[in-house]
């Protein structure tokens, strides 16, 4: 792609990734969550593939595979942590520790340190969706051949 597209991509990429991380991180407070934030960050991968060509980031395919496995394993492990109650029991909610602050009932401004398991699961699923959709986009981009213009 042209130098204009490459420059705008360089400028825009941190903003896109940061917005995706924000959507994942505030998934238990605002609209959004792991799926949506992961899709936003995967669109950053698509932006890089369009602007710089898929050959440039081909070596990160293994990284994306590892990230997807880490996300899936973290999700299952977090689900097993609540096995004292049931599978997927929210064992961190309201304990006062990590993400364990009590929630004010009714409409409230929202505190980031609430939610129990939910923010951790949001991160796991966000990693998984980011890696999955990103690797699909990367594989589709690698099909084109040597069109690194």
């Amino acid at each position: 792609m042209s130098v204009v597209v490459r420059t705008v991509t360089r400028l825009l990429l941190p903003a896109v990734v940061m917005f995706g991380a924000y959507v994942v991180m505030h998934g238990h407070l605002t609209p959004g969550g792991g799926f949506q934030g992961g899709a936003v960050i995967a669109s950053a991968v698509a932006l890089v593939v369009v602007a710089f060509g898929a050959r440039r980031i081909r070596r990160h395919k293994e990284t994306l595979s590892v990230l997807e496995d880490v996300g899936a394993l973290a999700f299952v492990v977090l689900a097993f942590l609540g096995i004292g109650g049931t599978f997927f029991y929210n064992s961190l909610a309201g304990t006062g520790g990590l993400f364990g602050q009590e929630v004010a009932m009714g409409a409230n401004p929202g505190a980031l340190n609430t939610g129990g398991m939910l923010p951790l699961m949001n991160w796991a699923v966000g990693l998984k969706v980011l890696a999955g959709l990103g690797s699909i986009v990367l594989l589709m981009g690698l099909l084109g051949g040597d069109d690194d213009r």
Binding site: G27, H28, L29, T30, P31, G33, E68, A72, F75, V76, A79, F87, F88, N90, A93, G94, F99, G100, Q101, E102, V103, M105, N108, G110, T114, G115, G116, M117, L118, M121, N122, V125, K128, V129, G132
Partner: peptide, 29 residues
């Protein structure tokens, strides 16, 4: 009070109906 989350959709997705999300992650994989 049960899931300590303001976003009810996230609470349903990851707490009450976690098995659906697990199956969905399997399908994505």
């Amino acid at each position: 009070e049960e899931a300590a989350a303001n976003n009810v959709v996230t609470a349903v997705l990851f707490d009450y109906r976690g098995f659906d999300t697990l199956g969905e992650a399997t399908v994505l994989f």
